[in-house]
């Protein structure tokens, strides 16, 4: 059994633990044995993106300490947190050779959730779920990590799942972390474009690999009384597995 360490992310731990449980169940079904390092907190991205790089470094040091004590692949169910640890830590520590090495040592062991499933469990049985699925490629997953195909391939492997076309599907939903609060009217303008595209797509659910974007899109859909549900890819796969139990 492959041993993996789960960096669950702060949003999953504090706001939507069901995403984390779905991740664990899917990973175990795919043959992995999941460990959850207890002392993990946040990757530091909120501070980093808001321009507080000293504060981000402090959190990054802690996260690197925690993750360097783990073994095997570190699975991260968030494209943006994964991009933070894989790419941005090295930027934060570019003037510190020792920390850069620590950042690289951890970075090479990190995989975003869909990336990991695609690589480690190509025979993964995805289950059955009649659904019309709009896949939303979150920005840092798509453009930061370059993960384009994996999530769609996983969705396509679910029997009965029908991926639908969303107009301008790779445009940002407007979340952007604190951007959604500091520039709330603009963020909402972007969200409205996204929601209009999702509504027009005929999907019954929007699936993504980032809880931040999902809270944003999901919260916008809920406010507008939409029938479209927002769901993490792990939850979708977990639900599909339930369908064949």
């Amino acid at each position: 059994m492959t041993q993996v360490a789960l960096f669950h992310t702060c949003l999953v731990n504090e706001i939507d633990p069901e995403v984390g449980m779905a991740v664990v169940r899917v990973l175990e079904r795919a043959g992995a044995s999941v460990d959850v390092p207890e002392d993990q907190t946040c990757c530091g991205q909120p501070a980093y993106n808001a321009g507080f790089h000293d504060d981000a470094r402090e959190i990054a040091r802690h996260t690197l300490r925690v993750l360097s004590r783990t073994e095997g692949t570190i699975v991260i169910p968030s494209g943006s947190c994964a991009d933070m640890i894989i790419h941005q830590y090295a930027v934060l520590f570019q003037d510190d050779a020792e920390m850069t090495r620590a950042a690289h040592d951890v970075a090479v062991r990190c995989r975003e959730f869909s990336q990991f499933l695609g690589e480690a469990a190509p025979e993964f049985r995805a289950g059955r779920l009649a659904s019309r699925v709009a896949y939303h490629p979150s920005c840092h997953l798509l453009r930061g990590l370059g993960v384009r195909r994996e999530p769609i391939a996983l969705i396509e492997r679910v029997e009965g799942a029908e991926p639908v076309h969303v107009q301008e599907h790779d445009e940002c939903c407007g979340f952007g972390g604190l951007f959604s609060v500091k520039n709330a009217p603009i963020s909402n303008g972007m969200l409205e474009r996204k929601i209009a595209a999702l509504e027009a797509s005929g999907a019954d659910r929007v699936v993504a690999c980032d809880l931040g974007c999902l809270l944003h899109v999901g919260g916008g859909l809920h406010r507008r009384g939409s029938k479209v549900r927002a769901q993490h890819l792990a939850q979708f796969l977990d639900e599909a597995a339930d369908g064949v139990r």
């Binding site: 706001i15 995403v19 909402n188 969200l191 919260g219 406010r223």
Partner: peptide
């Protein structure tokens, strides 16, 4: 502009 999903009763680590 949007609703905010409320946290569940337990954290992921607790669950």
């Amino acid at each position: 502009y949007r609703d905010l999903k409320a946290p569940g009763p337990r954290t992921f680590q607790e669950q």
